[in-house]
Nucleic acid binder design. Structure first.
Lengths: 188, 188
DNA sequence: TGGAGCATGTAAGATGTTACATGATTCG
DNA sequence: CGAATCATGTAACATCTTACATGCTCCA
C-alpha cells in the first residue's frame, strides 16, 4: 500500500510559505485561520519542525527581536519546496470524518430521560456555531481589506467560504432540530 | 480539570441499545449509519467491549447461530445504562474539528504549479460528496419506511439531516470554488 | 478445495493531547 | 516584584490505525 503521509507535517511545511516562520507564530495562525479544518498542538509543532530540519526540508535560524525574546525562525529549502508541491499534487484519498460528539449523543438521545437536556445541548451547539461563523466573517473581512493583493488570498477565501457555508448549514439544522424535538416533547 | 472521557467508549456502549450487540455488527452499523460523525476500527471495538465488561457496564454471552459462526453478544448492565445516561446529560465541551485534507491543500494551492490539478482535486471531492449524499438519502428512505415506529427513528433522522445539509452545502461550495479557480486560471 | 463473508482478536506503531518545565521581556 | 505575553521544548499518556493471525460456514 501507499506510504501513509502525515498531513500535519505538510501543514507545518506549508505554513513556512506564509509569514509565520516560528513554532509560536504557526500555532497562532493555526488557531485562527486553519482552525476549522486543521488543529495542531505545540506538542506536535516543535517536534515536527525538528523533523523537517532532520529531513533537509527546512533549516532554522535564531532571530533576535526587539522588545521580545528571541525566536527560532524556519526557512524552507528547495527540497522542502519540492516536497510541498509533491504533496499538493497528490489526490485526496478519502472524505474527512469529523468526530461529532453532539451527533453521537443525539443518535442515542431516545435513551435520555430529560428531553429538555437534548434541546439545551443543541442550543448550546448553535450558539458556539454562531460565534464561529462571526469569527469567520471577521477573518473574511480582514483578508478582503488587508491581504487581497496577496496571491494566496483567493485560496484563503475559498477555504473560509467552506467554513462559512457548512457552519451556516449546521446552524440552520440546529434550529430545525430543536423544533422537531420540541414538537415531540409536546405531542409525545 | 475534568476527567477526559473517551467518547468512542460511549459510542460502543450506546450501540448496545440498538439491535447491534456484537463487535462485528457494530462495525457494520458504524460504517453505514454513524459514518458521517463517528468512525471506529476493529482494533478499538474489541478491546473497548472487553473494557466495558471489566468495568461492569456490560456482560457477554456466546450465541450460536444457524448458517454462521457463533458470535459474542454483549448486553448492557444497569450500571452501563446509568453510565450512558450520565454521558448523555453532559454538555458538549467544544465544536468538532474535522481534519480536512482538501482544505489544507487548497490553503497552500497558490504554491501549486498546475492550477488544473487544484480543480481536479475539488472536482474529485465533489464527486465523493455526491456519492455520500446519495447514500444518506437512501438511508433516510430506509429509516422512513422500515423503522419509523421505533422511538429512536426521529433522532436517527436528525443526525442524518445534519449530514445531508452540510454535505449539500459542501457540494455547492465545491462547484462555486471550481468556478473561482477557473476564472483565475483564464484571467490570471 | 478455495474464495467470500462472518466473526474475534492482538501487536506494533502512528498520531495527537496534556501537563509540565523553563526562560525572556514588558508593564503596572 | 508579579502578571501577562512571548517563546521553546519534552515526557507521559491517550487514542487510533494497520497489518496480521485465526477459525467457522456456505457455496461454486
Amino acid at each position: 500500500m501507499l506510504a501513509k503521509e502525515n498531513h500535519s507535517k505538510f501543514a507545518i511545511l506549508g505554513l513556512l510559505t506564509t509569514t509565520c516562520n516560528s513554532g509560536y507564530e504557526m500555532k497562532q495562525m493555526i488557531d485562527t485561520s486553519l482552525n476549522h479544518f486543521w488543529k495542531i498542538s505545540y506538542g506536535q509543532i516543535y517536534p515536527t519542525l525538528k523533523k523537517l530540519v532532520d529531513e533537509g526540508l527546512a533549516f532554522s535560524e535564531e532571530i533576535e527581536q526587539e522588545h521580545k525574546p528571541a525566536k527560532k525562525v524556519y526557512v524552507m529549502t528547495d527540497l522542502g519546496k519540492a516536497a510541498l508541491q509533491d504533496w499538493l499534487e497528490k489526490p485526496i484519498e478519502q472524505l474527512p470524518v469529523e468526530k461529532n460528539e453532539l451527533l453521537l449523543k443525539l443518535f442515542f438521545s431516545n435513551h435520555q430521560q430529560d428531553k429538555q437536556t437534548t434541546i439545551l445541548h443543541i442550543n448550546d451547539y448553535v450558539q458556539k456555531l454562531t460565534a464561529r461563523l462571526q469569527t469567520y466573517q471577521m477573518i473574511e473581512e480582514s483578508i478582503r481589506t488587508h491581504s487581497l493583493e496577496r496571491k494566496d488570498a483567493m485560496y484563503w477565501l475559498i477555504t473560509l467560504d467552506y467554513g462559512i457555508r457548512t457552519t451556516q448549514g449546521a446552524i440552520d439544522w440546529g434550529y430545525a432540530s430543536i423544533k422537531k424535538v420540541e414538537e415531540e416533547f409536546h405531542n409525545g
